[in-house]
């Protein structure tokens, strides 16, 4: 090292410390969320229940009811925010959400078809997952066939088209569905909810999310370079097409897995990466963990509100929209650039 370089080399942006602090906050929030509910628990009760001691009723509440739901909220929030951060970097636009390529519309169609056919819950989740992956697959396929100079814009436009088609098919199924039995289930699913989550629902989604996160973590530097645009990324030494494909596949896997679990929960993937970017900057190596942690905490708070605000569960998608929409308008008003 040359003279005086160590001072220059230290980065002024908060890095590992802040991310560690976010993790601590998340653990605190999770602990609080386990305490809150129709049957309130004291911190002591929660602790002893977690250790498998004390009041049996408290143990059952903690392990069978609250903890699965808290874990699901953390998983869904972290996954959606991480996918959103990836999509935003990839599409070079901070106003992009994980469903830009039609993953939510596809997953929605899959789930609605499953409900329409009166399939069991696991099959509905499977259909949602397959629907989400298939929608993005079709977008990528059509995108590869269309010869247009701007690959990114092509993908986005085809994503809009496929999303609209899937939406039309969903509407058709809603019209045809049994209005007393199936339609409420469809509506509830499309608004997103963690109300009936059990450990058995979380277990298949968890490894999928982790598998999707691995390439994102490994490619974190290249994602930064990719956000300069294809041509520049290639000139800087990246096989842009291949890298983009991997990142899209990973982010889609993550989104489809949690959408199958929780239904369509909008706004998290759009809004949370912004907050993370304000805290740790746009460098993807820090943005990814920060987004995941903030997204997890955010959805945990929203879900706890959803189950304790009123006697009836408020759908998650409604709450995230009510909170997210004003924030989005504020972002627009701040005048950040749109498509360049």
């Amino acid at each position: 090292m040359g003279r005086g370089t160590s001072a220059e080399i230290s980065l002024p942006r908060p890095g590992p410390c802040l991310i560690g602090a976010l993790a601590v906050v998340l653990v605190g929030l999770a602990f609080g969320a386990v305490m809150i509910g129709p049957y309130g628990l004291t911190p002591g009760q929660v602790l002893s229940a977690l250790l498998g001691q004390g009041d049996l009723q408290a143990q059952i509440i903690v392990w069978n009811i609250r903890l699965p739901r808290v874990c699901a909220a953390i998983l869904v929030g972290a996954a959606l925010a991480a996918a959103g951060a990836s999509y935003q970097a990839l599409f070079r636009n901070p106003l992009v959400s994980p469903d830009i390529l039609g993953v939510s519309a596809g997953a929605g169609l899959g789930a609605v078809a499953g409900i329409f056919l009166s399939l069991p819950v696991a099959a509905i989740q499977g259909a949602a997952f397959v629907g989400g992956m298939a929608a993005v697959g079709v977008v990528m396929l059509v995108g590869a066939m269309v010869r247009h100079a701007d690959r990114t814009l092509t993908l986005v436009l085809i994503g809009v088209v496929i999303g609209a088609l899937a939406g039309a098919a969903t509407s058709l199924l809603k019209v045809m569905a049994d209005p007393y039995d199936q339609l409420p289930a469809i509506t509830f699913w499309l608004l997103g909810s963690l109300a009936s989550i059990t450990t058995r629902d979380i277990l298949p989604a968890l490894p999928m999310v982790l598998v999707g996160l691995i390439p994102l973590v490994l490619l974190r530097w290249r994602v930064n370079v990719l956000s300069l645009g294809d041509e520049e990324a290639r000139a800087l030494g990246i096989e842009a097409g291949r890298t983009r494909f991997i990142v899209i596949a990973a982010a889609t896997l993550i989104t489809a897995s949690v959408t199958a679990l929780a239904g369509v929960v909008g706004w998290v993937g759009l809004v949370i990466p912004h907050i993370a970017r304000m805290l740790v900057g746009p460098g993807f190596g820090r943005l990814l963990p920060a987004s995941a942690l903030i997204g997890a905490g955010y959805l945990l708070i929203v879900d706890t509100l959803a189950r304790s605000l009123a006697a009836v569960e408020v759908p998650l998608g409604v709450l995230t929209a009510v909170i997210g929409a004003p924030f989005f308008v504020w972002l627009l008003a701040r005048g950040r650039r749109g498509w360049s």
Binding site: R13, R92, S227, L228, L236, G237, G281, P282, R337, S340
Partner: peptide, 20 residues
């Protein structure tokens, strides 16, 4: 050009190292 995200100057220069 203006990138869509507010990267630090050092980060932008470091991107030149990607090929290595």
């Amino acid at each position: 050009h203006a990138p869509p995200f507010p990267f630090e100057v050092l980060e932008v220069v470091l991107m030149g190292r990607t090929a290595r």
